[in-house]
Amino acid sequence: MIYLFIFAFILDQLLGELNYKYNPIILLGKYINKIEFFFNGNYLKIKGILSIFFVILPFLLIIIYIYIIFKYNFFYFNIFGFILYLSIAWRSLIEHGLNIEMSIIEGNINMSKAALSMIVSRTVNNLNINQIYIATIESIFENGNDAIFAPLFFLFTGPLGVIFYRIINTLDAMWGYKNNRYIYFGWSVAKLDDLLNFIPAILTGVIYACCSFKYKYFKQSFLCSFKKFLKWKSKNAGYVMSAGAGSINIILGGISIYNNKYQYRPQLGINKIPNINDITKTCSLINYSMFFIILSFYFLNNI
């Protein structure tokens, strides 16, 4: 397990996010679209469940084949180390956050909105500067769980667990919307993603608290996460973002725009409205949290 983690970590830092043309996750997305095209129709909840099965099935067969052919030799660990690298996005998440920050510093708000649109599902065109700060920080905290810490948690279940989580999380990102197209078809995958993320989200919130910048924020992070996340429509995301907000002493939530409609989200965190410096603090907290995970893996491997 430690070998898979180190190999994936090195690849992530060296390569970052793969080019769109060569990224297997993009190919997965195209395959998912074909499955949806075939199944989306009548009896949507049942077909949504069947769609999950048919998305996962070929990858399950490939994993079984790799295990039979290579078992636990050099190629086996390198193949699954590469799969773990594809499942985490530490470097690219930080790069996205800092790109948004740099665009704001340079006074190019339109460029910052374009960069923000790559990591959020909300409508960015009419966001003011404070809403850009909030959207950026919320997305980094939430994706810290979805794209970094949750896949690493599932590494304890083996490579198949990591692949299963990444597929379900990708399906949720594509089908987990409560609109006319997906409210029934994507229902099952949204529930499954919530279930899979429940424990990782709690652990991510604890990690954010442990890596907070000052001792008083450690307690504050726990208080924020447990007091305020229940009001959020996605409990896992609300818990993670509330813990992160408490860790850097800021307030998240408020009015935002989804599908060109204004939505009011409950307040998360405490004390002050974010500013440009808080994007840097958020990225730093993700980095500190990752170093915390690295040390934890090393410790667990040596006990």
Rank of each mutant, 00 (worst) to 15 (best):
Y208M: 01
A209D: 00
C211I: 03
C211W: 00
C211D: 05
C211Y: 03
S212W: 04
S212K: 04
F213P: 13
K214D: 14
K214F: 13
K216M: 14
K216C: 13
K216P: 05
K216F: 13
Y217H: 13
Y217A: 09
F218T: 15
F218H: 12
K219I: 15
Q220K: 11
S221L: 09
F222E: 10
F222R: 13
L223T: 12
C224G: 09
C224S: 14
F226L: 15
F226T: 15
K227D: 08
K228C: 11
K228T: 13
F229S: 11
K231S: 10
K231W: 07
W232G: 01
S234I: 05
S234C: 10
N236G: 06
A237V: 08
A237R: 05
Y239M: 08
Y239G: 07
M241P: 00
M241V: 01
A243Q: 01
G244D: 05
G244F: 02
A245F: 04
A245H: 05
I251H: 08
I251C: 13
L252D: 08
G253R: 03
G254M: 09
I255W: 08
I257K: 06
I257M: 06
Y258S: 00
Y258V: 00
N259W: 04
K261P: 00
Y262H: 05
Y264L: 07
Y264H: 08
R265G: 04
R265D: 08
P266T: 07
P266K: 11
Q267W: 15
I270C: 07
N271K: 10
K272I: 00
I273V: 06
I273N: 07
P274S: 01
N275W: 02
N275V: 00
N275L: 06
N275Y: 01
I276R: 06
N277Q: 12
T280M: 11
T280G: 12
K281M: 11
T282V: 09
L285Y: 10
I286Q: 11
N287M: 15
